[in-house]
Design a protein around this nucleic acid. Sequence first.
DNA 1: GGCATCATGATTGCATGCACTATTGGTCAT
DNA 2: ATGACCAATAGTGCATGCAATCATGATGCC
Lengths: 254, 254
Amino acid sequence: MAGSTATGKTRTLGGAGEDKAGTICRAIRRAIVERALRPGDRLPEDALGERFGVSRTIARHALGQLGSEGLVDLRRNRIAVVATPSMEEARDTFDIRIELERLVVKALAGRLEPDQIAQLRAHVEAEQAARGGSEATSIRLATEFHVLLAEMTGKSILTRYVNEVSYRCGLMLSAFSRPHSSECAVSEHSEIIDALIAGDSENAMRLMSTHLEDVAERALLVAPEARSRDLMDILAPYAEEAAGSPARPRRTKR
Amino acid sequence: MAGSTATGKTRTLGGAGEDKAGTICRAIRRAIVERALRPGDRLPEDALGERFGVSRTIARHALGQLGSEGLVDLRRNRIAVVATPSMEEARDTFDIRIELERLVVKALAGRLEPDQIAQLRAHVEAEQAARGGSEATSIRLATEFHVLLAEMTGKSILTRYVNEVSYRCGLMLSAFSRPHSSECAVSEHSEIIDALIAGDSENAMRLMSTHLEDVAERALLVAPEARSRDLMDILAPYAEEAAGSPARPRRTKR
DNA sequence: GGCATCATGATTGCATGCACTATTGGTCAT
DNA sequence: ATGACCAATAGTGCATGCAATCATGATGCC
């Protein structure tokens, strides 16, 4: 399906004995936060396998992983699809994220090494530079800022969870937020770094809370029209005028 | 290796189109909290598959899942083993767990339905009844109490995470806590229920925090002799007296 | 024309087979 | 006796094949 010659297999994942399933996971996660993949998009095992140059077994393994992270919905005998979170799930996920990231800044306040500070500054700079560019890059960088912070704690479990909820929140944004509504958070990132350097853990935690609450609010409260991507709700307004129009909507994506 | 005839396959998982990998996961999780499986125990794919009556593929899938939950260590080309958490990981996991379960009681305070209350009371009663019985049952019931609470919030993501950290904490207890050191928490469970019924969310959160902190403290601070299960540290005291004794320690479990 | 029924293709569920890697016990030289 | 080297074995990594299940378009009936 994807452009690959019959002779030369699509050696996208070729490499050495790396983690092939993990590579697929990373790619899909990234595609989701960048909104290249949107909720409901189908992820057939063999298409994935072919695209990444591996067999269905590996693609399946990757999908299982993503399913356990809540990024894809996995139902028996059904094609895997990018998860379509509900409004309640979105709210809950942000609540959890806030508490987790409060732990992050609490652990980090006053303990940042100079090279870490430089790395964070550079990241924020990259975020600022990307403001004019594609929205996908902005969102990805914003997500990666939080992941970067978590990694700096050195706490592997906390890092893993922050990773998960961050990507999940990216999915939420994709599901609910209107285009161009999740920008302008770059300065808040800077403020958090400042508070961390100052060692003011209380302030850093407060800043992180409000920052995430802002993101959630912008994403979740804005755009009541698009609150739900449930098919029935989406089509409700159209159903009103569908009396005389023979336009037959196609359900599948491609 | 496990006793199964060559002719009659071990139809432990026979059933209909259920979730075979999930069944294996549940079994192993439970075995871990009940300390039937201890950190470092080996989990070979084919042994698992044979035991549960499925192929390696499924066993492998289950192991991948457990690996992503942090219950087993998965290294390339190596036999999967029950994870051996470090002291720091244990502390971090408890920190995360406290915040998550605070969210649980916050969501539940004053919102428990009568049947839910009855269910909780019954569970605590079962815990009390199990105090004389096997330690494994006590630990499992204690863990399940927290999981039950989380499920009652109706928040699927929160439930999933509480599930994960609870089982992980069970593993931590298995790794660090001495036998019979994690009992006597039943009354604290009752107090939490009371606070939830009273609708005093602040008090409930405080009780939950201290309850979990107690558990962590009992598990992590007690028994400095067994703080680390690293092979070198474990053998350190023995190395002193190993001068004249020909006792050759076997490294592998079975 | 609208609706239920069925057949075909698409897709997953799972087991098995082969290749490769790590481990383990033995062997040989020192 | 001790240490390094090597062969046999156990175990994983991965692809492929077959059966089962679901989705979708075609057909026939009303």
